[in-house]
């Protein structure tokens, strides 16, 4: 148990370091898959098999695949890697890293100060989780459903391919000026009259 935990932790940390230092997006994403799998191993060692499986299916599966699709669509190849190289200079990352290390030191200090030592290990199976999820957390589950729905609709709307990005008020103005210009011509009157603006 302990060996498994420390090993997978080491792998997770190392893989994550690789994620944030890669120049090519696709490499970073592959290391991220490794990191997620290592975290899934930690979950297993903590006696939580259900979330370990979900971690792999959803994080390492669905989300990473989504990101890889985007990287492919945007064609972020070696050109991007070259740009990343230019961006990732010591003067850019040194300051934030030191600040983050200060934060890490504080967190670890606080954790160790309030430590209670070893605790007994309790196995929690998926049945318990399911009972809790559809018992006391049922409202939260419904709300999560709304959230996912909103995410889908939002992504579909934002991701729509639009030629020109104009606010609808501005669009209306543009259209109305067009109609005015047209209405000055007498022969077009019959056609323009019934035309109403549709957003």
């Amino acid at each position: 148990m302990n060996v498994l935990f420390y090993l997978s932790s080491a792998i997770a940390i190392a893989a994550t370091i690789m994620v944030i230092t890669r120049y090519k997006p696709i490499h970073a994403l592959l290391y991220l898959v490794v990191s997620f799998m290592a975290v899934a191993m930690i979950f297993l060692s903590l006696g939580a098999p259900f979330v370990a499986v979900l971690e792999i299916i959803l994080y390492a599966g669905a989300i990473i695949v989504l990101m890889i699709f985007v990287v492919m669509m945007l064609n972020l190849g070696s050109e991007t890697a070259q740009q990343e190289k230019e961006w990732l200079l010591p003067k850019v990352w040194l300051g934030p890293s030191i600040l983050s290390l200060v934060l890490l030191g504080e967190i670890i200090y606080l954790l160790l100060r309030s430590g209670t030592g070893n605790a007994s290990f309790i196995f929690i199976d998926s049945k318990k989780v399911a009972l809790s999820l559809y018992g006391e957390y049922i409202i939260a589950v419904e709300l999560t459903g709304f959230l996912l729905m909103a995410g889908i609709v939002g992504a579909a709307h934002i991701g729509k391919h639009k030629k020109k990005h104009l606010h609808r008020f501005l669009q209306e103005e543009e259209v109305s000026t067009k109609i005015e210009v047209r209405s000055t011509k007498p022969e077009d009157e019959k056609q323009t009259k019934p035309v109403a603006y549709k957003p």
Partner: peptide
């Protein structure tokens, strides 16, 4: 892991990396 993610947000300029 959290602080590593934070470092990533702070140091990278590419939005994809920030999302990651």
């Amino acid at each position: 892991l959290f602080v590593l993610g934070l470092v990533g947000v702070l140091t990278r300029k590419n939005i994809i990396f920030i999302l990651v």
